[in-house]
Computed example of a mutant assay.
Amino acid sequence: MPAPTTAFNELPSGIRAAIESETGPILKVDPVTAGLNSSLSAHANTADGTVFLKGLRTDHRWVWTQQREADINPYVTPLAPRLLFHVVVDGWDVLGFETIDGRHADYSPGSPDLPKVTDALRELAALPCPDIELRRAEQRLAGYVAHPADAEVFAGDALLHTDWNNQNVLVTEDRAHLVDWGWATRGAAWLDAAHWVIWLVAAGHTPADAEQLVGHVPTWKSAPPRAVDAFVQASANLWTEIAGAKPDAWTSRLVSASQRWNQHRSKHSHVPPRTVH
């Protein structure tokens, strides 16, 4: 479920003052409606420029992602926008990032953004995984494979973003930037390319064409076919669970994409299917 939205002027005075102590006086606030994981998502305009604000209440179940983003940021810039400050005051946890003057990536077939996103995948794959607390891919997916031990094929020491929603990819004239690192994970190096395939299929690619596109990412070539089969089935089960009994249009699109990829792979799969009820 998306986090409930809070406008900047609805924040307690203490957290607003703490933010302005970092930014200087805020002249105007423009809400950002694209994100799902933050209660506060806005551009704060000051005399010196614009800062992107991202915040959650300290009692929110996802508030730990705020610290995760703060911890990982020094290791992932300039692929990610630079973190300017992190304040926790008055029951609120707020991050302030430099603003990227870009637009959300277009994943549709033939889009000129696709090579830039591929380059971002390559750039991420070249970064060492920092020695900080991160979730592990095999643990995140253990509940969606036929047997928990099957998830060991997702284990590894690569740094993964894992959420390749095109809303998390900002394209500028010369490159693509990745935002929203709260679900950064440690795992097998090929997994980010696999996560992207689902979003490509949801954007209109056939599963075969999506696999061909991620074939330009060197880490994908290291993916054992049986491990990919296990990931595809786990993803189909995961998205089915997320959708629940009454999925919205956005979630239905991802369920359909993951199932189409699963059907494509099942022709040559030796991994027994498992459906989450």
Rank of each mutant, 00 (worst) to 15 (best):
K116L: 14
T99Y: 01
T77E: 14
V87L: 02
D106C: 13
Y75W: 12
E138G: 04
S108M: 14
D119G: 11
R135L: 12
V88L: 00
P78L: 12
V88N: 04
G110T: 15
P115G: 15
D93C: 02
L124G: 02
L121M: 10
E138M: 03
H147R: 11
P109A: 09
H86P: 00
L134W: 01
G91K: 05
A120Y: 01
V89H: 05
D113A: 08
T118I: 15
L141W: 09
I100P: 05
Y75C: 04
W92Y: 03
V88Y: 00
V117R: 05
R140V: 10
A125G: 09
P78Y: 11
H147I: 07
D119H: 12
V89G: 00
P115L: 15
E123R: 10
G96R: 04
P128Q: 10
V117I: 13
P81F: 12
R136P: 01
I132W: 06
V117T: 06
H104C: 14
G102E: 10
P74N: 12
L124Q: 04
A142S: 11
Y144S: 07
I132G: 06
N73G: 04
Y107H: 01
K116P: 04
G110F: 15
L124I: 08
L127N: 01
D101I: 06
L124D: 05
P128M: 08
H86R: 01
A137F: 04
R82C: 14
I100C: 05
P112M: 09
P148Y: 03
P74K: 12
V76S: 08
L84P: 02
D93F: 00
A105T: 12
L127F: 04
S111E: 13
L141A: 07
P148K: 04
D101Y: 07
N73R: 02
G96K: 00
H104V: 13
T99R: 05
E138Q: 12
S111L: 15
L134M: 05
A120Q: 01
H86W: 03
P81T: 12
L95G: 01
G143A: 08
T118H: 14
E98P: 03
D106T: 12
A120F: 00
R103H: 09
S111P: 13
L95H: 03
L127Q: 01
L127R: 03
Q139L: 10
E133Q: 08
Y107G: 03
D150M: 08
P128G: 09
Y144D: 06
V76W: 07
A137M: 10
A146S: 08
D106V: 13
E138V: 03
G110A: 15
R82Y: 13
L114G: 14
F97D: 11
L121K: 01
D106N: 15
S108A: 15
A126N: 05
T77P: 14
V76F: 09
E98K: 07
K116I: 08
A80Y: 07
D131H: 13
R135S: 12
N73A: 09
P81C: 12
P112Y: 08
V89L: 00
R122Y: 02
H86D: 01
Q139P: 10
H104M: 13
P112W: 08
L121V: 06
P74D: 12
A142K: 10
H104D: 13
L141Q: 07
D131S: 12
V94H: 03
I100H: 02
A120S: 05
W92C: 04
V145R: 01
T77K: 14
G102A: 11
I72S: 06
Y107I: 04
H147C: 09
A120E: 03
L127P: 01
N73S: 09
P74T: 13
